[in-house]
Design a protein around this nucleic acid. Sequence first.
DNA 1: CCTATATACTTGCACACTCAAGTATTGATA
DNA 2: TATCAATACTTGAGTGTGCAAGTATATAGG
Lengths: 140, 140
Amino acid sequence: MPKESTYSAISKSLWLNSAMISKHLDNSLGAIHGIGLSEYMVLLNLEEAPGQTLRRIDIAEAIGRTASAVTRMLMPMEKIGLVEKVANDRDARVSLVKITAAGREIFTNASVTLDAKSKTLLKNIDSEEAKLLLDLLHSI
Amino acid sequence: MPKESTYSAISKSLWLNSAMISKHLDNSLGAIHGIGLSEYMVLLNLEEAPGQTLRRIDIAEAIGRTASAVTRMLMPMEKIGLVEKVANDRDARVSLVKITAAGREIFTNASVTLDAKSKTLLKNIDSEEAKLLLDLLHSI
DNA sequence: CCTATATACTTGCACACTCAAGTATTGATA
DNA sequence: TATCAATACTTGAGTGTGCAAGTATATAGG
């Protein structure tokens, strides 16, 4: 059997860890705030965007999903009033998405939950290592 | 807006990175060897298991999926002969899974692909950092 | 033994996602 | 201006997964 490289070991570990962690966070957010991690990431990106507004395609890019996933994800989010549609007068093809006050509220609350849960899940890593890990993840 | 903790930043980064990386690896493995990352991980665990045999529940545990996911995943894998069912005479509830010669062959080939692809995906990380990152991921 | 509880799976249903194809609009070029 | 390619989305069909409920077997306590 050929010796496995550190790189494929990282891929595997990343795959496994992320599966576990995502599931935990998803369940927590879902139970408490009624949204999943994907929805949370949408809100996060909208919150940080200039004018709290983004095109659907940019959301898709930002969260690593396809445009169709975003379309379907936003339907219920719009229905319950977390986001709203905004037209773009320069380009009739795009339908902009804007976070609402209700959406911002949910986002803020969910952030607290996410934070707390993340700390518990990553309790084996001290804050020194955490910074290091974050840097490494960002450089990928 | 409350300052976000390093820990939740790690969760988010882990979520995003893993989505991207998994998709790439999944596509590569699928196109070349006809299996996904999950199937690969099943084969990996079987290969490393004593007697190349595991209970379905242990597979589920090892790859972070539920028992039902494993049941459905194994059906096609058994059909194309990557794994085979083995009865357990001590306990009639369990149906053991064993990797076949064909399965081992696919696994070995897929490992090469996975390795190469992982190196390209993680090319921004040198081997020093890679070891560090792997350690951190394992300690989660 | 017999019953109750736990374990190892399997199956029906729902949901989130992708891919491919379709629609509408824009921008560039002949 | 007419056409054609590119872009921003939407939609239909198929896949993989989880949850909850069901089946079969095992184990423990009376």
